[in-house]
Design a binder for these strands. Structure first.
Lengths: 234, 234
DNA sequence: GAGTGGTCTAGACCACACG
DNA sequence: GTGTGGTCTAGACCACTCT
């Protein structure tokens, strides 16, 4: 049994995705939508509010409710895999697995994941190639008890998150990320085909599920042309 | 005349800020709050929802509404001035004005601000010092017609945003930001007391008001120990 | 079972934008 | 003035969690 407001927001979102509602189009008034869907205006407002929060719509008091520009809706501050993000931008992404092993937890990954020293962790190191050229080196640590056997699992579409979700029922729902500028050491320079000492963007990230349980810690270094984009409010 | 739900959310938020409501404390039930504030439960829910969205509270269906851990509170992805952000973290921030002038718009700032080439722009360059040491160089461009005289205005508490708001009624409500790693050139290296060629974090940011009008474009470079932190959802 | 938050109804009046 | 979204009332029943 579908909730009324979800039925409405799904319907409107699918119209936007299908292109029958275009950016800047004005939706019918809330009273009209209430009548159309056979609910009260409060229920329509609940549905519209969830779409506004998701960046699909915006409201102008006294004027109407409009379809948002997809550029504003975009990937900003969304937790997505490296591959997902770039493929959506139309780039070709491939992955070279550098390492895949079960190791004892230690140091920063252990601390960030909230594990005892020595607990088993699956460690993955990957080189990401975009349009055929090296783009980033990523190291990931996943508590082994959340995903036993991950070390032998091929990654679905190169995406760790997708694999965790489909194979182990582990869903990352948010992450906190630290961004630094660092100088490439010799190994990174070689992997990424840059000069040693040249600037790289380093991101350290801990992803958690909806219960705040840490499911992955990752560190990655990317070539300078792969900028990060964030959206700040208020 | 204050709105009822704002009066309620302000009251609860101030209790959290003052420490009379501590993290993990459970709030009274919504029905009890409705009675206490003399409003309906829907109005209480409106107030609580705004605090949940702001990261102050979280709800557990069937259990209650609780005060969130401040670490989870959305200090992340908030549009704040450099000074505000670091002062909140207990650091001493001061500013050395390097340049302040009216110049014709050109290049990237003109494009990002949506100005015609040659339109007047107020250009500010500042060196930010944290705990007495150089931390970042910031360049800002503000359309002069939004803030005529800004070039001669002392910045309130070193904050451009605060000054724009108080003196010119210009309120930045969100910004999109690009983050890159770059190598310090000679001038930046000297200003920030680092070796030429060493890695710096560069951020390019365009801030807009609630009507999507660009109010500031900024580029800044910061020493590597000033990391950026972001929060990613879903 | 008791208590909580989640959804929903059927109205009302207010604040705002625009012609 | 007209139409829009913003706020609010006074209820109701449902879904979830805990004991």
């Amino acid at each position: 049994m579908a909730l009324a407001y979800e039925r409405i927001s799904d319907d409107i979102r699918s119209q936007i995705d299908a292109g029958s509602l275009l950016p800047a189009d004005r939706l019918p008034a809330e009273t009209a939508l209430a009548e159309r869907y056979g609910v009260t205006r409060m229920t329509v407002r609940h549905a519209l509010t969830s779409l506004v929060d998701g960046g699909y719509l915006y409201r102008r008091h006294g004027v109407g409710t409009f379809v948002a520009d997809p550029a504003r809706r975009r990937s900003l501050n969304r937790l997505r895999s490296f591959a997902e993000e770039l493929r959506e931008a139309g780039r070709e992404v491939s992955t070279e697995m550098l390492a895949s092993a079960v190791v004892p937890a230690a140091g920063e990954p252990a601390a960030e994941l909230g594990l005892e020293q020595g607990e088993e962790v699956v460690f993955l190191a990957r080189l990401r190639l975009v349009d055929g050229g090296p783009a980033a080196v990523q190291q990931s640590w996943v508590p082994r008890r959340l995903a036993p056997g991950l070390e032998d699992e091929p990654l679905l579409e190169g995406s760790l998150y997708r694999t965790l979700e489909a194979r182990f029922g582990v869903v990352a729902s948010y992450a906190d990320q630290r961004i630094l500028a660092v100088a490439a050491d010799v190994a990174l320079a070689e992997a990424l085909a840059v000069e040693p000492g040249s600037p790289l963007l380093q991101t350290d990230r801990t992803a958690r599920d909806h219960r705040d349980v840490a499911v992955e810690h990752a560190r990655s270094w990317s070539r300078p042309e792969f900028e990060l984009v964030t959206h700040l409010e208020r």
